[in-house]
Design a binder for these strands. Structure first.
Lengths: 149, 149
DNA sequence: ATAAACCTTACCCCAGGGTTAAGGTCAACG
DNA sequence: CGTTGACCTTAACCCTGGGGTAAGGTTTAT
């Protein structure tokens, strides 16, 4: 099976599949003409990879899942643990996003939203000392680091 | 005020401030020795920038907020509209993450989590046809594109 | 024979910086 | 006077997770 067919079957792009290979997540044999060639095992791996990505696993984490997948001595408890950790991470992200959302909601409510230049949102966001009359993300100092996960 | 002091005051890193300047979001005057020098206006802008970032605005969107901030002819309605659009974006992200979370929850429940190699999670994630007995993200084909927003 | 549809590698691009490296400046201390 | 340490400067490479494009080789069908 050539890469294009695999892409259609897994929902990945050919580019992504090559990228995963370059990162050591999957391997492929080559035909005489240099084309990558995939068998049933590869397709199972790539299907797992695609779905794990879709539910929020990072490539690093997908690599660990694939290692478990290929390990016939694995314990299902290990897989379950990884999934539960990912659930906990998602919960944390959900918390952060919810706090952002609520902060914006409160800002919006304090703004007239009319023709005037006076704007409570800009005032609150740029004020020097304690800007918000309500908690801004619980004073967590480093939110940006969460967003790239 | 030198960049280090501004960094401490706004919670940004000096690097980030220089990066914002390189992207045209803020400007700074220079002292004779080449050091960046910031006044009250700069600090207000950077405070706004830092807080807008923390509540989920992209750099591009922050640029628009700063333009409104500097525009004395602005209408507060425009600012409010931007905030409400961001709220809608956050709601969409929250939806996606919630679906991921629920999918993982169902996968985990179907897994024994014991010493055995047999694992429902890996089976479901790698199976060929209809893998999940439940909806996987509502069959949305392209979730990864949302994550980089 | 030639065009369409594949495939290959290789390069630059995005956000949002972190992390060196290599060096200039400035204050205080001995 | 010299030196140490804390600043500051630019430049340049690293990360994630690929997208996009280019330049070229292959295969297939017409």
């Amino acid at each position: 099976m050539k890469i294009g067919a695999v892409a259609r079957e897994t929902g990945l792009t050919a580019k992504a599949i090559r990228y995963y290979e370059s990162q050591g997540l999957v391997k492929s044999r080559r035909r005489d003409n240099g084309y990558r060639d995939y068998g049933r095992d590869n397709i199972k791996q790539l299907t797992l990879l695609a779905r794990a990505r879709r539910v929020g696993f990072s490539l690093q984490e997908c690599a660990e899942l694939l290692a478990l997948f290929d390990d016939t001595e694995r314990h299902s408890a290990d897989v379950k643990k990884a999934v539960q950790q990912k659930i906990a991470q998602l919960d944390e992200q959900l918390d952060n996003l919810t706090r952002m959302r609520d902060t914006l909601e409160e800002l919006a409510q304090r703004c007239q939203g009319d023709e005037q230049a006076q704007c409570a949102i800009l005032n609150d966001l740029s004020a020097a000392n304690r800007p918000m009359p309500f908690t801004l993300l619980g004073d967590t100092p480093n939110l940006p680091e969460d967003s790239h996960e």
